[in-house]
């Protein structure tokens, strides 16, 4: 099998006495969806931040596509092909949906130091951006400022930004949050297809979605991975059921 897209070894991060990440080891293989679940406060956000590059671990290593990126910041990791979505939508609110995605296209092309040509009507930006918007069903909302989009539309715009980066790895932080049953079902179908383009590390609370999508599931509790395996294995694991699945039997 090829190198894992993402490989985390014995990652540790403490805030004072709190061990937010306590020796986490996991990987993400090409073509798969690896779901990360766990109760609130289990350390999912801290782990995501260390993978994306916003937070330095105290010890341990993060490897992307075989390369040690532990010392690199978020922009460098993004340029290597890591696209993340945020738990709370993080967009340029004054820009239209289209202009947000155009920014992702120019970031992918590495052309942010061009000073003269206007972006407006630049088809090398607008065409890939419109294509990404169309894939998430926002083509008819392209001209609406991001701040005026509905919650669900902003979640989809986050996804369009990630698509426009043409990434080699998706890091999706609760993409289903606040979408409702219908939206979650739609997105589940979409993500299921998306894994063919690049593997997905999925942090998600929606268990229906997780068990429908994931090839592997890891359960995080108090900063540690307490169980890891196929959906069937996780369903059968007593520790995982106690920690997260709300099963008292």
């Amino acid at each position: 099998m090829a190198d894992p897209a993402l490989e985390i070894r014995d990652l540790r991060k403490s805030f004072g006495a709190l061990r937010a990440t306590d020796g986490v080891t996991l990987d993400l293989r090409p073509g798969e969806i690896h779901a990360l679940i766990g109760p609130n406060g289990a350390g999912k956000s801290t782990l995501i931040a260390q993978i994306a590059g916003g937070l330095r671990p105290d010890s341990g290593s993060v490897r992307l596509f075989g390369r040690d990126v532990t010392a690199l910041g978020a922009p460098a990791r993004a340029r290597m092909g890591l696209a993340r979505s945020f738990q709370i939508s993080s967009l340029a609110g004054e820009f239209s949906a289209l202009r947000n995605v155009m920014l992702a296209v120019q970031a992918r092309a590495g052309t942010s130091f061009r000073f003269l040509r206007p972006t407006r009507g630049d088809r090398r930006l607008t065409e890939p951006a419109m294509a990404a918007l169309a894939r998430v069903g926002l083509a008819d909302r392209a001209e609406v400022p991001a701040a005026l989009l509905s919650h669900g539309e902003r979640r989809r715009l986050e996804l369009a930004l990630a698509l426009a980066m043409e990434p080699r790895l998706f890091l999706l932080d609760e993409p289903m949050a606040g979408l409702g049953a219908e939206g979650s079902r739609e997105l589940t179908g979409f993500l299921s297809e998306l894994r063919r383009e690049a593997p997905i590390l999925l942090v998600e609370h929606d268990m229906d979605a997780v068990f429908a999508l994931a090839d592997r599931i890891s359960v995080l509790e108090a900063g540690r991975v307490i169980a890891s395996g196929s959906p069937a294995e996780i369903r059968a694991d007593a520790g995982a059921r106690r920690a997260y699945l709300g099963d008292s039997s």
Binding site: F86, S90, A92, E94, Q106, F115, L161, M165
Partner: peptide, 21 residues
Amino acid sequence: SRFGTALEATRQNPQRVEALG
């Protein structure tokens, strides 16, 4: 320009700009 777009985006949301690379 592209520079201006990226610059205005850093004003609105530096975290997003970094996540884009």
